[in-house]
Write a protein that binds this DNA or RNA. Structure first.
Lengths: 123, 123
DNA sequence: CTTGCAGCTCACATTGATGTCAGGTTTTAG
DNA sequence: CTAAAACCTGACATCAATGTGAGCTGCAAG
């Protein structure tokens, strides 16, 4: 499929897909006049990339993890595996922080509601 | 305390503290020749700001939440409260996504390890 | 008083992912 | 064949938080 279709199917902009390719996250074959062609598998791949972006990984880091998923027999896979475990831990720590922050927000909301209700009752 | 001390106590750079003030997240009194003075409470306040930054809120959004925490009797507090609940939900959704991503990474790690071990056993 | 660290303002640089525009080519539909 | 729609490259713009440097001033210790 051409880039526009991949964009439509993944919800990622054409611009971003070209950028992913430029960063080595995505590979395309060029057809005739130079237009990119992608396979059906690339849809899942783009989804995966997106997920890692959401998790706060940079394109550089995502690139390092790619062999682990798409070329698991590579000799670099040990390093990629370590990298992945490391990112998993980072993500876990981040999640923990966010849970903590959410608790803070909950406390704040509860306090603010109580405060507001106090004021309303007093008024 | 002066800005350098606040920076040291919070682990936030002097540059960033000035930026926070510029964005209205922080208020200082100016002493004599124009130097900023902060109170002890500002330490906790900066920590709070940092936490929200980590949670992915922008300075603009954080600013909107401030009345809720530091001026709860303000008439804007209803709006701030809504905003805060909204951000809480956004954060919750984000956490859910991250948990999902972490699961993906776990699966990947598990698969990659099995794959590697297979290769080692085969060799 | 002097010296030096800390602070001030202003302004420009950086980073990363993405938007956007321009000018040209390919592909597809009619 | 032709027009429109999709694609190409390349370059510049954007946003937000922060870094950095210049040039100047405040403040505290010797």
């Amino acid at each position: 499929m051409r880039i526009g279709e991949l964009a439509a199917r993944t919800g990622v902009s054409v611009r971003s897909l070209r950028y992913y390719e430029e960063q080595g996250l995505l590979v395309s074959t060029r057809s005739g006049g130079g237009q990119r062609h992608f396979t059906h598998d690339d849809i899942e791949r783009v989804d995966f990339i997106q997920r890692l972006y959401v998790a706060g990984l940079s394109s550089r880091t995502i690139l390092e993890l790619m062999p682990c998923r798409y070329a698991p027999s590579d000799e670099n896979s040990d390093a990629a595996l370590d990298r992945m475990a490391q990112e998993r831990d980072r993500l876990s720590a981040h999640i923990k922080e966010l849970l903590h922050t959410r608790d803070s927000l909950d406390d704040l909301i509860t306090a603010a509601r109580a405060d507001r209700d106090d004021r309303r009752t007093a008024a």
